[in-house]
Design a protein around this nucleic acid. Sequence first.
DNA 1: AAGTGGTCTAGACCACGAA
DNA 2: TCGTGGTCTAGACCACTTA
Lengths: 251, 251
Amino acid sequence: MAHSDIPLYLKIYYQLREEIESGKYKAGELLPSEEELAVTFQASRTTIRNALQELEKDNLIFRKRGKGTVVREPKTAQNLNYISSFTETLRAKGMEVTTGTLTVELVPAPPKVAGALELERGELIYLVQRTRVAGGSPVAFITNYLLPRMVPELEKKKEGLRSKGLYQLLEEEYGLRLHRAVETIEAYMSGPLEADLLHIPERMPLFHTVRVVYLEDGTPFEVDISIIRADKYEYKVFLEGRPKENRRSLK
Amino acid sequence: MAHSDIPLYLKIYYQLREEIESGKYKAGELLPSEEELAVTFQASRTTIRNALQELEKDNLIFRKRGKGTVVREPKTAQNLNYISSFTETLRAKGMEVTTGTLTVELVPAPPKVAGALELERGELIYLVQRTRVAGGSPVAFITNYLLPRMVPELEKKKEGLRSKGLYQLLEEEYGLRLHRAVETIEAYMSGPLEADLLHIPERMPLFHTVRVVYLEDGTPFEVDISIIRADKYEYKVFLEGRPKENRRSLK
DNA sequence: AAGTGGTCTAGACCACGAA
DNA sequence: TCGTGGTCTAGACCACTTA
């Protein structure tokens, strides 16, 4: 009698999420009190609170002491900024994305990349370069540098990169968990090189992004440099709250 | 003998944070086990876990079952994306920012803005337009639309906008708490209008951003439309984790 | 005054990682 | 096998909101 390994509080979380999303509890309304939920789910209040905490992380609810647990307007229950590849982002919008050119090779790390990834000068690193095609025309030229010790024999997985996003492959094939990333976005105009790579005229607006990705333990792991046609793409950034004051207790 | 109203778990959180930041526990090292901390702080393990959870939210630690609680590399303990004004962002980088032109007026809401702010067509709304100047030249033209019922008599605070960022004024003068925002970033080239507003040639790369800001209860409250010289500015985006799978229990 | 979420305790058993 | 964090219980008192 497989009683599933999912912790109780997560099961409760899923069910409540479903009920909120299905409209059983509407925006602005109160959820049943923690005490009531504890009875209906046959769980302790602590477990209920654990489930509610997950819903709060998802921004589906917020809580008012003395009042109750309020269902949020779905409009602001947006996702945060996740580490997604260009391909994943476009596909999530329903666009079809294919790969044009694709190369995978081991090269000495360029100085800037070596700095970001904490390497010695000239250490070998995987270089992946791809053209991404959407709607029949190239829309982005993407360069990735990856630490070889984390992705051994990457060149053998080359064909996987045609269909999957890079990050999906890193997760599925190497079990890597990406934790954080910092991305810098600039805009500039195409020159002769970009015109050639993306088959566009010169003096077209382009995004130039540099992203450094870190693993759970803080190791910098990958550098992603993308050149993207600005007339075919827009960035969405989700912002949350105001900068924290550095509160200190007065004693 | 004021024994302070701060909950015990927060006091423990502050102390541990201090000890991490002061270097008592170094990156990569383990914190004492929850059991040990419970003894030294004379608190239950639940309370200790509450404190550690706060540290985890701050990205100062992460936990490994069977192993212990690990102090993170400070490098990835970066801030997330907060709702900051253009001015605040530039000032945080140490740049001096002043205001060029500045207008505040009540106008009928344009259709797109009325849609984003859930207004009736033609309802009146505050329109704030400013030129931001850095290093002697205009770098951005910023347009804000704000709900009048939330910021009564905004025109009287006009001069405050010369020195402060808009969001700082909203907090300090109106006690508004900004909760979430969604920003869309595009790049395009200057035409005659932009050339005039920012004193630049045509066909220069520009950022065009549209931001909708929501309050805690989910009310859309403000629309910010900015045009920024791309040769003077870059965006930094902090990304966190991978998109959640939509796991469902199988029973 | 009654009901809500916030904090806290003292225990228990489990799953995982390392020795 | 042992120590770690993860889950869970049953109870308690407090702070805040609303009536």
